[in-house]
Amino acid sequence: MKIFQRVALLMLFLSLSHILPAFADDKAERAAPQGYAENYAFDDPEQRQVFIRLTKELRCPMCQNQNIADSDAMIAHDMRRKVYQLMQEGKSESDVVDFMKQRYGDFVYYQPPVNTVTIWLWLIPLLFIIVMSILFVVRRKSADETNIDEKLAKADAMLKDD
């Protein structure tokens, strides 16, 4: 069935187009250290990477669609300073995220937690694909059958006319 091959190809393409930019991002991150991170002194380059990653994953509560790395709002300055301070105290990456979540809620972290409310973000597209494929198959089958019946009837009628 040609149509299934096409659908499969399309799905493959869609999934790749989601995965590839993630790789690209990762590389860009390593290649170009951010300017603001130069204002903070780290003993260990690894620590600087953690700092850059954290400031990119934490969301500015004031300017909604910016992370605290991009934002110049006062609160973003404060949060960057706090992230640095916490890291100097030896806190781990997840400790810092928890610290911010405690104060600003799940909102502050760009990775939403999976719970009973947010699970639908993943489930709805999946359910949609499943339901639509089932409907597609069912409809196609029944359409084929009726078509054949109709065609036969038409053919019969034509034969009779002749």
Partner: peptide, 12 residues
């Protein structure tokens, strides 16, 4: 140093 504001989750 706005530490308490940060602890309070103040955004502005």
């Amino acid at each position: 140093y706005r530490d308490t504001s940060l602890d309070l989750g103040v955004t502005g």
